[in-house]
Design a protein around this nucleic acid. Structure first.
Lengths: 324, 324
DNA sequence: TCCTTTTTCGGAACCGGTTCCAAAAAGTAT
DNA sequence: ATACTTTTTGGAACCGGTTCCGAAAAAGGA
């Protein structure tokens, strides 16, 4: 079934059917006739033929570094919900955290003629920017910051500060901040600075250390750190790291939160499953995904939007902090 | 840049360029000439134009009920890896566990002219089958069984049996099997029967109860069950349920595994994060995804494959069982 | 060298839509 | 009824490829 056959059945021309299907500048009579025939044969126009001549392909590309993290999931769900509701399709380009495949993905999706791309970036490089500029379709970055692209980011500095304020209410010293590499601008730098700047203004003394995003690597690092001395409170840059710290503490009979308080960042589901439940900052991952998709749709429609949009987060006061 | 321009630059006809791009029945000389020109302008053929005339769209549809479970993730990763390596694109149709959207997805993806569909089904209904039959492209179902469709399934019965054998080595009575609704054929029926059939042959006495896949609902159900009496060992139909049981035990000062042994099924990452680590059966989710994708590609190429393929699983002996 | 076979190539139709333009029909005002 | 405006419609070109078919060129054989 194609537009030609429909037009023959209705006794009109192809162009009339096409017009009916799109803007609809068609008389009431033909409209009704076509509606009936199209429904009867449940005809749907061929997307490829449509996309060939028309500008829009009604597909958006989503570049996803991983799918096995809470943050990535939630963000993806937010994106998909908006895209799906708008009647578009999302094409996933999965990179398995390989930053080179992010570049590939940008090019490949552009060549696919998607209408726009959402990039869940691991971190931004100059090469990213240059490809994004060379690709003349809208691109929205979610989760990482860049001055030269539209991006949706979490208020990591604010999150750090919230946590610092909360911790400062109970502890004045012997704080350990366990961060990640500062190659990650959002988590490694902003989040850390949010915490430490506030401690600095209050004159709270702290130590810092660095580990990996990976659970087992973090676990090993923590074992080494705790060998020398165990702090009163450890502020971990991610929930995963905090979970590793918790695991270590339980294994070594260190009571949490009585002897050691632990906090994370993220608001992962697992933080409510472990015992004690983990104090953390919950980020609006889902909202970020939604906003990214909505922003992309606006850009596709030619609207102008602000280059940076922030997503709120919230301190979740759970059991892993000693509220003495 | 399009095929016409390339052909003009090379001084040959469109058809020659097309032939070069596809089967390649072109003389060595023109081959080299075209290669150079195409590389110089980094030309890539328009997929929509290609798909219009040619049969294959080089896109496969993947219907995904959820992305926030370990099982779904791993399966998806397996699928994506194979699809991506084969130079195809996967279009995700996310259903958010709404079974009606699975039907929608089948129709929508078919209308999109994808070459084939992988369905990560929640459970199979007659309607599924009828749609799958009406859609005349290959469909592979992963994770659920149906006699009338190609499917990749986990050996749930075998997994149940393995666990039963292991548990039977330490416990002879006071076993609780906490299952899920038998509307879920794989988990609710097969997995349960694998456990209970073996217990029956050995004459081991047990109780059974039923709960939900959902962590919090399971948690509430467990609280009710444990009010009357606490068994020596609880075999939970999923890791999530087992985690809920563990949580309850820890909260109520029930020592695991000394007073209560707990097991799950799934092999989720979280089972190694909690303390004690959880004894479970690890399913080959990633392999299932891979096999589903490979099978689909074969079907697309017109090969015949067997209707049912099983994926192996493995008992993981962790700390949550009392090996007295 | 001539004939036959094989390989390479170009022309044209086609895939299923969209869009522009001019013609036809309908509506309105005089 | 006529002239003018607006709405509706059909024809044809086009999007960027693929594919069939027959012609031309190259290769092989006698």
């Amino acid at each position: 079934m194609n537009i030609e056959k429909i037009s023959q059945l209705a006794g009109v021309s192809k162009s009339t059917v096409s017009r009916y299907l799109n803007n609809g500048s068609v008389s009431q009579k033909t409209k009704e006739k076509l509606e009936k025939i199209i429904k009867a044969h449940d005809y749907e126009p061929n997307r490829f033929a449509q996309s060939l001549k028309a500008k829009r392909t009604n597909m958006v590309g989503v570049i996803v570094p991983r799918v096995d993290s809470f943050a990535a999931h939630e963000t993806f769900k937010g994106i998909d919900e908006v895209i799906h509701e708008s009647g578009l399709q999302s094409i996933i380009y999965y990179t398995n955290q390989d930053i080179n495949r992010e570049m590939e993905g940008l090019k490949a999706l552009f060549n696919q003629r998607v209408d726009g791309i959402i990039l869940m970036a691991t971190h931004m490089t100059a090469e990213h920017i240059s490809i994004i500029n060379s690709v003349d379709i809208p691109v929205v970055i979610v989760g990482q910051f860049s001055e030269e692209a539209h991006c949706i980011i979490h208020d990591d500095y604010g999150a750090g500060r919230k946590m610092a304020e909360y911790i400062a209410g109970y502890f004045k010293d012997d704080v350990l901040y366990l961060g990640v590499s500062s190659t990650d601008e959002a988590v490694g730098v902003k989040r850390r600075d949010g915490v430490l700047d506030y401690f600095d203004t209050l004159g709270i003394t702290y130590r810092t250390a660095e580990t990996s995003f990976n659970y087992s690597e973090a676990f090993d690092d923590i074992s080494v750190i705790f060998e020398t001395s165990i702090p009163e409170v450890i502020i971990c840059a991610t929930d995963n790291i905090a979970l590793a710290a918790l695991k270590h503490a339980i294994e070594h009979g260190i009571s949490v939160p009585d002897e050691l308080s632990i906090t994370g960042f993220g608001g992962y589901n697992t933080t409510n499953i472990v015992t004690p439940t983990l104090t953390t900052v919950r980020f609006g991952y889902f909202e970020a995904g939604e906003k990214a998709a909505k922003s992309l749709l606006k850009l596709i429609d030619g609207e102008r939007i602000s280059m940076i949009q922030y997503i709120e987060n919230k301190l979740i006061k759970n059991e892993s902090v000693d509220k003495k």
